[in-house]
Amino acid sequence: MSDHKIFSMAFSKIYPLYVQKAEKKNRTEEEVIQIICWLTGYSSDDLANQIGAESDLATFFAEAPTLNPNVSLIKGVVCGVRVEEIEDPLMRKIRYLDKLIDELAKGKSMEKILRS
């Protein structure tokens, strides 16, 4: 695994940025929580515990109960890179989450974001 700087960033520092991005576009923190829980398998209580523990992103994803089986349906570009082409598994998971939050901020319905 590469040693990207983002891997050691605390999820608790990134989470408010996701919420802020969503709220700027008239979406809610509850929707952000729903997306994160859908992707990672965390319950909302487990998610709150991860935020409180200030886990880094590597730990956050390593301790995630289970990645959603529909994660392969997440496609598109984040930061100029196609998420489905990212080789590093941890970076791909981080970018999946980024992509889902981007879709929320762009006004997609939760049904489409959660690949229902």
Rank of each mutant, 00 (worst) to 15 (best):
H4L: 13
K5Q: 13
K5Y: 15
K5T: 15
I6P: 00
F7H: 11
S8A: 11
Y15R: 09
Y15K: 11
P16Y: 04
P16G: 07
L17D: 10
L17R: 13
Y18C: 02
V19D: 02
V19H: 07
V19C: 03
Q20A: 13
K21I: 05
E23N: 04
E23T: 09
K25W: 02
R27G: 03
R27E: 03
R27S: 03
E29W: 03
E29P: 02
E29A: 01
E30A: 12
E30F: 07
E31Y: 06
V32Y: 02
I33V: 15
I33W: 06
Q34G: 00
I35S: 06
I36N: 01
C37P: 07
W38R: 12
T40W: 04
G41P: 09
Y42M: 08
S44I: 01
D46N: 13
L47I: 13
N49W: 03
N49V: 06
Q50L: 11
A53F: 08
S55C: 13
A58D: 08
T59H: 10
F60K: 05
F60S: 02
A62G: 05
E63G: 00
A64V: 06
A64P: 09
P65F: 03
T66I: 09
L67P: 04
L67R: 02
P69N: 04
V71P: 05
K75N: 15
G76K: 00
V77A: 04
V77C: 07
V77K: 10
V78L: 01
C79S: 00
V81M: 09
V81Q: 13
V81I: 14
R82T: 07
R82M: 10
V83C: 14
E85S: 12
E85Q: 14
E85I: 02
E85D: 15
E85N: 15
I86R: 04
P89F: 14
M91E: 14
M91P: 02
R92M: 13
Y96K: 10
Y96F: 15
Y96E: 15
L97G: 00
D98C: 07
D98T: 00
K99I: 03
K99W: 08
L100N: 10
L100D: 00
I101P: 05
I101S: 02
E103W: 12
E103D: 14
G107C: 05
K108T: 01
K108V: 03
S109K: 11
S109E: 12
M110S: 05
E111M: 08
I113L: 10
I113T: 10
I113D: 00
L114E: 03
L114C: 04
R115H: 12
